[in-house]
Amino acid sequence: MTSAPRSVDHDPAATVPGPPLPLLAAPWSARVARAEGADLDLVHGWMRSPHIDAFWHQAWPRERWYEEIAGHLAGDAILPVLIDLDGRPLAYIEVYRVVRDRLAGQYAELPHDLGVHIAIGEAGRTGKGLGRSLLRALAEGLLAADPACTRVVAEPDVTNGPSLKAFAAAGFRHVGEVTFPDKTAALMVHPRHEEDMPR
């Protein structure tokens, strides 16, 4: 006996809009990253930095980063974002819809759950509390940008101690671990309200 294919009308991934740009207040600002020019140079350069490559593993040629960002911009799964602090570029962020990500099915996600990947570009600006401040601003900014979203999640590598501490200090809760082919990740959740935590 075979079952009928699932209707697109009932597929959450088909009806939920793409990830939004976080609404950030000064001194933070966010804008969609472009796949060319200075934005591409910035992301490509940052991704070759040892402190980022150790966990992102995406020290790719410039041409591949062009394809990566252009692909994100053409789809509705991941939004590539550049974050400035006081007008100076600080971080590259990917905002994603969990239902369209490999994290889908790894926990009891809701259709509007949003996830974040974060890379602070310059090693000299890490370890100064900027990460936790940015993560808190991002979580609040994403919840503000999408009223239907009740939680923001992240899946940093379990071996990345500084990242785990920053997420915890920013109000994210460690609710479990997820195993991917390239890493074991800590599932971190920042709920809008306490009752929005995964059960």
Rank of each mutant, 00 (worst) to 15 (best):
P198H: 10
T159H: 11
R136N: 15
A74L: 04
A35L: 03
G161Q: 09
E36W: 15
W28T: 13
A154W: 00
P20A: 05
R136S: 07
A59F: 09
T126W: 02
F180G: 07
A35D: 15
I118Y: 01
P5V: 10
W28K: 09
A148I: 06
A13L: 00
I93D: 01
Y92R: 03
P80K: 00
L85H: 10
M197W: 07
R97F: 00
V175M: 10
N160H: 15
R136D: 14
L142H: 06
S29P: 13
W65I: 09
C149M: 08
A119Q: 02
V16G: 00
S3E: 15
L135M: 12
A148Q: 15
L21T: 03
A77V: 03
H44G: 09
A4P: 01
P162F: 09
V175P: 06
R102P: 03
A166Q: 04
V153C: 11
M1P: 07
A30I: 13
R48P: 00
A91F: 03
L23T: 14
L135F: 06
A166C: 04
P198Y: 10
V32M: 07
P162W: 09
T150H: 12
A35R: 05
L23N: 06
V189I: 14
A104N: 11
N160Q: 11
I120K: 01
Y96L: 07
A154C: 05
I69M: 03
W46P: 05
L79V: 04
A169C: 05
V178I: 15
A166K: 02
H51C: 06
L42W: 14
P27E: 14
I93Y: 00
L103R: 01
H51V: 07
P50N: 06
K128F: 05
A186G: 14
A59T: 13
R48I: 01
T126F: 08
D9Q: 15
L114N: 06
V152A: 00
G124N: 11
V158Q: 07
H117K: 05
A169V: 08
I83R: 04
R6P: 00
S3R: 15
L143K: 11
R102I: 09
R100S: 00
T15L: 08
E94S: 01
V99D: 02
R6T: 09
G171S: 08
A123G: 04
G71Q: 03
P191M: 13
A148Y: 07
F172H: 07
G129E: 04
L142G: 03
P191A: 11
E177R: 15
D86I: 04
H10Q: 14
D53E: 11
V153D: 02
R151G: 07
E68T: 13
H72L: 01
P111V: 08
L73K: 02
